[in-house]
């Protein structure tokens, strides 16, 4: 276990800048779980995630001296992680993702709901601990294109504010809100379809 004073961001960075191995260990101990989880949700497979995590730590260690402290340390590290994962995806054949448009609500010309809307919220509350429902949600997020998935993961899985997410991704806050809203509309529709399928059996 690395020493306690390395828990302070400024001390940690200072020590990383001089290449102190204890600082590298402290950095790893503190961030590996978060980085791995984030990488997994973007690249979606274990071996890519593992390599991405390697790259992220290398970048953080080597770039520690360029970190200006304009943002929190963790948000700088998240940014590096998202960037590393996106580059990795770009180098590969694209994963099949669904078109989000097919899951957006439909309206009539005068702006009314074009199809009936069921209230399945109570049903989901009863199923809240259902493993299958959890799997279905995860699967659905995996099918989202990166553009939406990354925003969704930072906001809902990591629990960051829209401002933090915007800063990490280099987007404006309205852009983050709009992507998040569309991602949720998509998830709502996925859940609707899933639950109505269940009923028809």
């Amino acid at each position: 276990m690395a020493s306690e004073r390395l828990l302070d961001d400024n001390v940690l960075l200072e020590e990383l800048r001089v290449g102190n191995p204890e600082a590298v260990e402290a950095l790893f101990d503190r961030f590996h779980g978060k980085i791995y989880g984030l990488a997994m949700s973007i690249v979606k497979n274990e071996s890519d995630a593992e390599e991405a995590v390697q790259d992220v730590f290398m970048t953080v260690v080597r770039k520690a001296h360029t970190f200006k402290g304009n943002s929190a340390l963790y948000s700088w590290i998240y940014r590096i992680c998202v960037n590393t994962c996106l580059m990795r995806l770009r180098g590969k054949r694209r994963h099949e993702t669904v078109s989000i448009e097919e899951f957006m609500p439909m309206f009539t010309e005068d702006g009314m709901h074009a199809s009936p809307i069921d209230d399945w919220s109570k049903e989901v509350e009863r199923k809240a601990l259902d493993k299958e429902l959890g799997r279905m949600i995860r699967k659905s997020t995996e099918n989202l294109s990166e553009k939406y998935r990354v925003v969704f993961v930072l906001s809902d899985v990591e629990g960051l504010s829209n401002e933090e997410t915007a800063k990490i991704l280099g987007l404006t806050v309205p852009a983050v809100k709009s992507r998040l809203h569309r991602a949720r509309l998509y998830m709502r529709e996925q859940l609707s379809r899933y639950l109505s399928e269940g009923k028809s059996h």
Binding site: V24, M40, W120, G134, V153, V157, M187, S192
Partner: peptide, 29 residues
């Protein structure tokens, strides 16, 4: 249903790192 979706999504947990992956990564780093 939109509100319920939000609540469900916020309950999602990140994937946990398998122990052997952690060991391998730590050695590497």
């Amino acid at each position: 249903t939109y509100d319920t979706t939000r609540i469900l999504c916020r309950k999602m947990k990140p994937e946990e790192i398998p122990a052997e992956v952690r060991t391998r990564l730590k050695e590497f780093v």
